[in-house]
């Protein structure tokens, strides 16, 4: 398929889009920000016969708080998320993760829905969505289903999304007053780079100093999909989160991860960095908590 011969249609509504997806006898792909799709297209990968351009579907771009959580439209851009006061205070890890995606131009174009369906093990928003208990609403012409984000990914670039389905809503649980969260990323430079390792952490704090009641930890880039670190999570509740305890939790992280070596880093370094980033994240969280 020549790039110049790919057609592009721009549906006016979600229903029109879903109809097109269900009824077209040609291969179709959705395109929103295009920050991943266009790169792939240039490389000759994933060229459809028809692009369905959903960039203009304003009904899928929103951030709003409802009774069952904060709802994010899949076309919400990283810039929207990073600048949202609601998310900066009640979903810190997600706002921080979006802030660390790519460069300004990528953040202006790239969407959270795109980051999810691309299903890269290094996707920056995904660990944050894990710790914020995100759920996805998947819709097709025949109906809707709601699944936990942890059940969405099958492997690198593989998800449970059916050919005629699209993500129409993302629901996260906002942090309660005693909860704090953070996103940490290690790339080959400070910004604008694909993560070597990333991690999101959310903690529920008690009334005692550095008392952790519960916590969630999710790592990216250290397994075929983003993963939860459940041994480390259990350790969070064992006692006061002293610097020594944090160090021990960090050291445990290597038991949770199964990274590979690639051009960006060796498996050995990735494994050590999972611990280092968790350790650094917990130090920074404690500092943040204590300065409240």
């Amino acid at each position: 398929m020549r790039v110049s011969e790919i057609e592009l249609v721009s549906p006016k509504s979600v229903i029109e889009c879903l109809s097109y997806m269900a009824e077209s006898d040609r291969t179709v792909r959705l395109i929103a920000g295009g920050t991943d799709a266009v790169v792939q297209m240039k490389e000759g990968k994933g060229r459809p016969e028809v692009w369905i351009n959903i960039k203009g579907l304003k009904e899928l771009r929103y951030i709003r708080e409802e009774a069952d959580g904060i709802h994010l439209g899949p076309l919400t851009t990283h810039t929207d998320i990073a600048r949202s006061n609601l998310l900066k205070s009640r979903a810190e890890a997600l706002a921080e993760a979006s802030w660390q995606v790519g460069a300004e131009q990528i953040r202006n174009m790239g969407t959270i829905g795109g980051n999810i369906v691309t299903a890269s093990p290094a996707g920056d928003t995904i660990p944050a969505l894990y710790v914020l208990d995100a759920e996805l609403e998947l819709q097709s012409l025949t109906g809707k289903r709601r699944i936990k984000i942890e059940d969405f990914f099958l492997g690198p670039r593989r998800t449970v999304l059916q050919k005629d389905e699209m993500i129409t809503d993302i629901i996260i649980q906002p942090q309660k007053p005693n909860e704090i969260s953070i996103f940490q990323k290690l790339g080959p430079r400070r910004a604008q780079a694909i993560s070597i390792v990333n991690v999101a952490v959310k903690l529920a704090m008690g009334t005692e100093p550095r008392q952790c009641l519960d916590g969630k930890i999710a790592f990216g880039s250290v397994a075929p999909t983003v993963i939860r670190a459940k041994k480390c999570e259990a350790m969070l509740k064992l006692g006061t989160l002293t610097d020594e305890m944090i160090r021990q939790i960090g050291k445990t992280a290597w038991k949770e991860v199964s990274p590979i070596s690639d051009i960006r880093a060796s498996a050995e370094y990735r494994r050590d960095m999972a611990g280092a980033l968790l350790e650094r994240g917990l130090y920074r969280l404690m500092k943040r908590w204590e300065s409240r």
């Binding site: 080959p188 430079r189 910004a191």
Partner: peptide, 10 residues
């Protein structure tokens, strides 16, 4: 993507 240049941030 993988050839890493310093940017303004660095």
């Amino acid at each position: 993507t993988n050839y890493i240049l310093p940017t303004f941030k660095e």
